[in-house]
Nucleic acid binder design. Structure first.
Lengths: 204, 204
DNA sequence: CAGTTGCCATACGCAAACGTATGGTGTAGA
DNA sequence: TCTACACCATACGTTTGCGTATGGCAACTG
């Protein structure tokens, strides 16, 4: 009701965002020209003015997604100093942003696609590298840091899948906090939960 | 070259198996009638004699897959007595059978499909239940057993993804054994590797 | 040997999706 | 105001996959 009668012209980024929505909800196959055009309230005529073909749209969406992922990793690193809490927040975030998880899983499922494959490869390497740096910052050697990073990232990916395919199996409510703490205590050497820290201050 | 000239008639199970092959290699969308017909060396005429439509084929493939999964879990349980080694073998198996992993990931990616969703839900519940039983058999209470089972299964799923999307990041060669032992030692309370057990016998 | 049945090929109609060609409209600038 | 261009609609041809209808053939059966 705001910008009223004749809505603004679309941009290529508008199309890319709409494509990402389609991927998150129905997978890479859902990146169909006429379909997204309908979702945007226009026709193919608009699309083929902004893009050469379907591949170009998918490519733009992938570029956009990869950039957001990279910025997200960097933002996460800058916001939190303690490497332990960095990883902890990563796990908690696996629960938070549903769309981000859907996007990764959908793209990963189409890793066969020559456009998609290299991108998720880079995203994976970047995220594992991020976690390796965290473990290295805790004083671990390169070999053990890598082992722990791979394991931690596997937990992250597995949690994404569980939240999508069997959300009722993941502890909910108050048990959820326990579960998150349990994960961090298992995967992060020397991790102490905030609740436990508070208790220690009172008793110690 | 064996059964020579005119090959046997196809059965519905032949079609279901071929459909599973297609799913493992190119996802659920690859379950296309004419495509699988070509792979089997026949035409659609054959298909619509054995099945009513595409959904019936997908349904048959899903039933077949679910049955194999169930039998696999049972077989695994019967073969190994120690609950700790049961879980350990599960992790090692995530590396072994490539086709099984591809199948799960492909089906899970299409969990939107009303035919697929319920099946992978059941499969997940059964496998998590299996792991819960393992942890319970170690003497853990129900709450902690469930937490550990969910975490362990998340590792399992995550490992499947990594093997498909970023296989080079998973430790290979001799480091692989170290990594598997590290996983088990992290996720299984009181787990002792076979190598360590041998050493203890020598030194103790 | 004639008829039935199991299994498959061929031919057709239909819908969805891609891409092209071309026409239309609003808006900015000369 | 007139023109040019950005942006979009419409119409068309093509491919691909689903489903149906029907014909063919080999093997069994009486």
């Amino acid at each position: 009701m705001s910008k009223s009668n004749h809505r603004r012209s679309l941009t290529a980024d508008d199309w890319a965002d709409a494509a990402l929505d389609a991927v998150a909800e129905n997978g890479v196959e859902a990146v169909a020209v006429e379909r997204i055009a309908r979702a945007l309230g226009v026709t193919k005529g608009s699309f083929y003015w902004h893009f050469a073909n379907r591949g170009a749209l998918l490519d733009a969406a992938l570029k956009r997604w990869e950039r957001q992922q990279t910025e997200d990793v960097i933002a996460r690193a800058e916001r939190e100093q303690d490497p332990r809490n960095r990883i902890h927040r990563l796990f908690r975030n696996a629960d938070g942003s549903k769309r981000a998880g859907q996007l990764y899983l959908a793209f990963a499922a189409s890793a066969n696609d020559p456009l998609v494959g290299p991108v998720i490869k880079r995203v994976n390497n970047r995220r594992i590298g991020f976690m390796m740096d965290c473990y290295s910052a805790m004083g671990l050697g390169p070999v053990e840091a890598r082992q722990r990073a791979v394991l931690a990232y596997s937990v992250y990916l597995g949690t994404l899948q569980m939240r999508r395919d069997a959300p009722e199996t993941i502890p909910a409510g108050p048990e959820f906090e326990d579960y998150m703490d349990y994960i961090s205590m298992t995967l992060i050497p020397g991790f102490v939960t905030e609740r436990r820290r508070e208790n220690d201050q009172k008793t110690g």
